[in-house]
Write a protein that binds this DNA or RNA. Structure first.
Length: 272
DNA sequence: CGATATGTTTGCAA
DNA sequence: ATTGCAAACATATC
């Protein structure tokens, strides 16, 4: 489901609804999704207060008044919502974190999402071991490092950007959009990109993801943030889901192909 | 109605 | 070293 802008909007919603709440108990009908073990998580979280919700790339991080952190990845369809203690659980609800007056529900139709509880001092190691690249901001995302990596890679640019190692947060929608904005064909071999193109791509990644965060993310299927609100970024999309429609820049019909197994939308005229 | 697709990540085989 | 595929799973669409 979500790429960085959607995860960031979920984070903002969660921050407003769960920070300061004390956990009374945790229940799960699908404990397998808790990779570090449900019993351990239940024992550690119970009676502790959620002190913050942060994010790294597409990962959500819950902070507590103790030395552990909960890393939550929504994968394709993970969702959070806050409901009353008396409200009934629905079909795809997998975890309930109960507070005195409400409960936070994690739901996930495809059961791909994961939770991991790790000690606070291992948090940065976690992202290092997963090789997660910098956040897509001008401060964190170093263009010269980006250029250097691209210049000695024979990978295709789209799948490379999806790896999360060059920069964190791009998924299938925004990678297609950013390549259209930078006028780069998704199958271009990384090392043949000119320095000027890399510069443009770097800036477009930051601008696009920033704009998408500001607009509340894209709602193309069923995405809504933790407050049940949908975003409006889908109105700004130029190629994703636009197969056969004229390119807004040149009028050529947008084509859809498969690149590295992913549906890929692009303009065959603008993106050579 | 069977095949195919879906906003993700990981691991293995070629 | 890179890429292709399958797997984790459920549902909507072609």
């Amino acid at each position: 489901m979500p790429e960085l802008p959607e995860v960031e909007n979920v984070r903002q919603g969660l921050e407003r609804i769960v920070v300061g709440k004390k956990i009374q108990s945790v229940e799960s009908r699908y404990p397998r999704m808790i990779l570090t073990g449900f019993d351990d998580l239940k024992a550690k979280l119970t009676h502790h207060v959620i002190t913050g919700v942060t994010r790294r790339g597409k990962y959500l991080i819950f902070e507590f008044d103790d030395e552990f952190r909960l890393i939550s990845h929504l994968r394709m369809e993970g969702k959070y919502r806050l409901i009353g203690l008396e409200e009934s659980i629905e079909k795809h609800d997998h975890i309930a974190v109960k507070f005195a007056d409400s409960q936070l529900i994690y739901a996930d139709v495809r059961k791909f999402g994961t939770w991991e509880l790790i000690s606070a001092d291992k948090l940065s190691d976690y992202f290092v071991s997963k090789k997660i690249g910098p956040e897509p901001t001008y401060e964190a995302f170093d263009e010269s490092i980006f250029l250097k990596k691209l210049q000695h890679s024979t990978k295709k640019i789209k799948p490379y950007l999806l790896e999360q190692t060059l920069v964190a947060g791009l998924g299938n929608i925004y990678v297609d959009e950013v390549l259209w904005r930078a006028k780069i064909h998704p199958e271009t071999i990384a090392k043949v990109l000119t320095k000027a193109k890399v510069h443009l791509l770097h800036d477009e990644i930051i601008e696009l993801l920033g704009q998408a965060v500001a607009l509340g993310g894209s709602t193309v299927r069923t995405y809504a943030n933790a407050l049940g609100k949908s975003g409006t970024m889908q109105e700004e999309l130029k190629v994703y889901g636009k197969t056969g429609e004229p390119c807004v820049r040149c009028g050529t019909p947008i084509e859809k192909i498969k690149v590295a197994g992913r549906g890929t939308h692009f303009c065959p005229t603008c993106q050579k």
